[in-house]
Design a protein around this nucleic acid. Structure first.
Lengths: 391, 391
DNA sequence: TGATTATGTTACGTAGCCTAACAAACAAAT
DNA sequence: ATTTGTTTGTTAGGCTACGTAACATAATCA
């Protein structure tokens, strides 16, 4: 994750640590009563009173109702207040630009989806233009109940280098070719596969897991790794760039070029191999991977063989990842990755080659990436507002 | 790292956070004056006084002298006191059992090295017996100025699973077949390659790095990964088990068995290939890898070709690791890994296939592993004594 | 209409830090 | 040898962020 713009106050900012804990709790839980917060944070009721007063002075919390227990007085329910502000999150994808405007605790305020004129294989001008326009349009209709804009998050189809990393040779700056963010708003950039991984962590099948890997198999292949609850980025923003693992590699084969696996495991090369091997008497060869998967599902032998072989290849890649980070859980995503046809073969290959690991298909839809960058942007905004998280 | 024995008090234990910070500073720095500690920890001199008094009551610190600045009063120099105690660290290696007795701040009190009767490929009875005897012998001569024994650390040639991991199918318990640790002393277990990585971090070329990978190439091949300053262990204790990456893997090759790379890249298979390819007119074929490296260094063409090919294979493995964790630094260790002959070829292959990464040879000697487990055991003892580290 | 229970506030105590001021111990200047 | 200035360490006292105890408030239940 790269953060541009405002350098930001980190740490001490006048709030007591209890007030910060309360804010952070409402930030992550959405809403809670005072007794719930006391219980969860181990604070006394007087401390809760003063923390709430502190936060309320800035409009960072608001009371949204009361709930009645079995007996006794009603408990006041709170959530983040208007002044906690809002964020804009954008998935600058290859076919669509998806945008969400939401509060820090991720209540959706507004959303848009823009379809690009053509599929963009890499981050380029058209994506930058579309992002600029979509963000501008959303900013126009900002309602004043949304509070101040705290951050803009953008998920990119490119490597993204953290602030302390080595940013040479990255395409990440391309996003700014036609898009100039407001000067006082921090911009959070992250790779789109990593964002999908984050979404699996916060909304998907990896919820509650400290460690897991998310492998996306579609047009391209990529991986996002979460270790100890945190996204692994790497010195060059290249953590999870599995298209660069050594391939081919064997007793009589050394890799000749970088990223050969990207071509081999990508949809295009897969379909090329399918066409090559397609028997003349097996009917029309499928035109795309969706078609291939449909044929396989319907029992077409040639399609099944191709899918099985591809699943084996993916299983080999997954085994390699497990052998290096041993995450305990691997989530498969992307057009091919989520197919129930490949799952058993990936499991079989991965578990045969490496170590006991749960392997599951993603259940999140097309919103995963934008939800992931939303989470990251919200976290960044939260940190700027009340200081870095304690751990 | 697996921890057996005493469950331990974690966190709150009567010490103020300043006192804990002071202890932790002396633990990591070895010794420091009061003003130095004030400066480094951001504490006032009165707070330092009370923290020192607190720690001194338990004998956890001791004054070891005074140093004179340019002008002004002398500053008192402190280090950890006798009651901070000592630890025993053991490298249960394949040919030797190395043992160190040291204070928590790693002042060497005693050391022994025991040569095993034969090279042990796996953790088995002979190693367990040797460890039991060496530890017992060291405990006999415990001097009372050493203070209490706080922990025993053992580096094992086996996967080691963390307390929350999945311990099935591990050999780690073998160490206790003939060795029963004192019931009230915590035992810290860790894989020996991971220990060597830790040693690179605390004493070696990776000092000060947050992220790096250590690749050991010798009789076997293995990796230890440090991310955000912490060892990566993995759900099955299998993080860094690079002998399990998919191999062979190519357009016409899927791996048949687990760990084929272990056989292919190990010394034995390497030498078998060398013998196979050795020309009849090139003199006697080398008998072991050391001999092979010597011949290559002296310009022998066949030896050089074999070394270069092996280095390329290692480079491919390193590239795979970089593509997954992108650590920014890879340290090569082990009998073959530290050879200056392979370094340029590994660099060339790794950087061609993946991302800009510093690749260096280890400069630590045979003590690396025991120094690594010493660090881990010391940290564990420190945490038990004064609570978990804040971050 | 109490009795009971949960919530929130007020009053007050305390731990753990700080600053200010002073005492002690030193080198360098007089 | 005395004075001066500097650094170190201690004493005195204050402040902040918590806590507990007690009370006020608001609900259910009998």
């Amino acid at each position: 994750m790269k953060v541009a713009g405002v350098s930001g106050q980190v740490g001490r900012n006048g709030f007591t640590s209890s007030a910060r804990a309360v804010f952070r709790m409402l930030f992550s839980e959405g809403q809670a009563t005072r007794p719930q917060l006391c219980e969860a944070l181990g604070l006394s009721r007087p401390t809760m009173s003063s923390s709430m007063a502190e936060l309320d002075r800035f409009g960072y919390v608001e009371k949204i109702g009361e709930i009645q227990g079995a007996v006794g007085r009603k408990a006041a329910m709170y959530r983040l207040g208007e002044n906690a502000g809002h964020i804009i999150s954008v998935d600058a994808g290859s076919t669509h630009v998806r945008l969400r405007v939401s509060t820090l605790d991720r209540r959706l305020l507004h959303h848009r989806t823009y379809r690009l004129s053509s599929s963009q294989r890499y981050l380029g001008d058209e994506i930058s233009v579309a992002v600029a326009e979509e963000i501008e349009a959303s900013r126009q209709l900002t309602e004043k109940t949304w509070g101040p804009l705290r951050a803009i998050g953008i998920a990119l189809p490119s490597r993204v280098v953290a602030d302390d990393g080595d940013a040479r040779m990255t395409r990440q700056e391309q996003i700014f070719s036609h898009f100039t963010p407001p000067s006082d708003i921090p911009v959070v950039l992250e790779n789109n596969v990593n964002c999908a991984a984050i979404a699996e962590h916060s909304h998907g099948i990896a919820k509650g897991r400290q460690d897991f890997a998310y492998v996306q198999v579609g047009l391209k292949i990529g991986m996002g790794i979460v270790l100890r609850g945190q996204l692994l980025q790497g010195r060059n923003g290249a953590a999870g760039e599995i298209s660069h693992i050594a391939f081919p590699f064997g007793p009589n084969a050394l890799p000749a070029n970088a990223a050969e696996l990207e071509y081999y495991l990508g949809s295009e090369a897969l379909m090329a191999r399918v066409h090559q091997a397609w028997p003349a008497d097996a009917g029309t060869a499928p035109q795309d991977t969706a078609h291939l998967l449909t044929l396989a599902k319907d029992g077409n032998e040639s399609a099944n063989a191709a899918v099985e072989r591809h699943a084996g290849d993916i299983g080999a890649v997954v085994a390699t990842c497990i052998s290096i980070v041993d995450p305990g859980l691997v989530v498969l995503g992307g057009g091919i990755g989520t197919s129930p046809l490949i799952l058993p073969h990936v499991r079989e290959m991965a578990n045969r080659l490496s170590y006991p690991t749960e392997i599951q298909s993603s259940t999140l839809g097309a919103d995963a990436t934008v939800l992931g960058i939303e989470k990251l942007a919200a976290e960044h905004a939260c940190n700027l507002l009340i200081g870095e998280s304690p751990e």
